[in-house]
């Protein structure tokens, strides 16, 4: 049984989890977002961590129901930073995190509603000047301001990393699944409303938003005839195999290498 958030020891690890309103892919009903719930699960399993949940958004009945999904995991309160619908939530979240001063900030990699660009953790990291780590699979230990974590790589690979805290980490579907959300605690938990100035997202206002168009999907044709070939095709490593691993390089050399790659790929011109 994982550790319960409410019984945290004083002076232990202070973890903030950013939670958003999820949306079921088939029925579009609001719910706790899958990746965010995994982030909460990870926070709850950290030994002796005190967990606080932060959501920046609007106070609405549907949203409240979704947020209660997180409370049902055994959380007492969710801090709800009130923002108007056109707001850019990054400044408000950055302020809240600066004030709360958590050592570790967890969040899902990408929201299920609204922009869902997946850049929010990066923008926060930039605003706070903290390191960011993506695809967190597990936090192994936290000692003297350093965390040893496992990062998930494609095809089940794991990479062990050490990062200096405070840091921001994003969790995706490689992390353990979230525990069941129980109705009773969800109903009893509190939503603490915090007022904060809304920073209108000017860029967003200028955008034109339209429903996504269904695109035709290219059929994957497996030409092989035998089961063995089909299995090999299914289990084969992704194409490419190029690229390089740089170790023990200066930040300048690393940046140089990335810059070169982005140019090669045509991302930068």
């Amino acid at each position: 049984m994982p550790h319960n958030a409410t019984s945290s020891t004083p002076g232990g690890l202070n973890v903030a989890v950013l939670v958003s309103i999820g949306r079921h892919p088939l029925t579009a009903r609001t719910r706790r977002a899958d990746q965010d719930a995994r982030a909460v699960e990870m926070a709850l399993t950290l030994d002796g961590a005190s967990v606080s949940l932060i959501h920046a958004g609007q106070q609405e009945r549907e949203h409240e129901e979704a947020l209660r999904g997180y409370l049902g995991m055994g959380i007492d309160t969710v801090n709800l930073i009130q923002q108007c619908p056109q707001a850019d939530v990054v400044p408000a979240l950055a302020d809240a995190l600066r004030q709360g001063a958590p050592q570790l900030v967890l969040s899902g990699a990408r929201a299920e509603t609204n922009e869902a660009s997946g850049v929010l953790p990066y923008l926060l990291a930039e605003a706070l000047g903290w390191p960011i780590i993506t695809n967190l699979a597990a936090v192994e230990k936290v000692e003297q301001g350093m965390a040893t974590v496992l990062q998930a790589l494609p095809r089940g690979k794991r990479r062990r990393l050490r990062i200096r805290l405070p840091a921001i980490a994003t969790v995706d579907s490689s992390a353990p699944a979230a525990r069941q959300s129980a109705f009773g605690p969800a109903r009893r938990g509190a939503l603490e409303h915090l007022d904060a100035a809304s920073d209108i997202d000017e860029a967003l206002a200028a955008w034109q938003v339209q429903p996504a168009r269904k695109r035709p999907k290219r059929l994957k044709i497996v030409k092989s005839s035998s089961a063995r070939d089909r299995f090999k095709a299914a289990a084969a490593k992704a194409d490419g195999g190029g690229g390089q691993t740089l170790t023990d390089v200066t930040p300048e050399q690393g940046a140089e290498a990335i810059f070169k790659l982005l140019k090669e790929e045509g991302v930068l011109r």
């Binding site: 719910r31 049902g72 995991m73 055994g74 525990r179 069941q180 959300s181 129980a182 109705f183 009773g184 605690p185």
Partner: peptide, 17 residues
């Protein structure tokens, strides 16, 4: 167990979700 513990075993939680 389900409403307060949130401990429906095996596929229980998934089915309820």
């Amino acid at each position: 167990l389900t409403l307060e513990h949130g401990n429906t075993p095996n596929k229980g939680a998934e089915v309820l979700d």
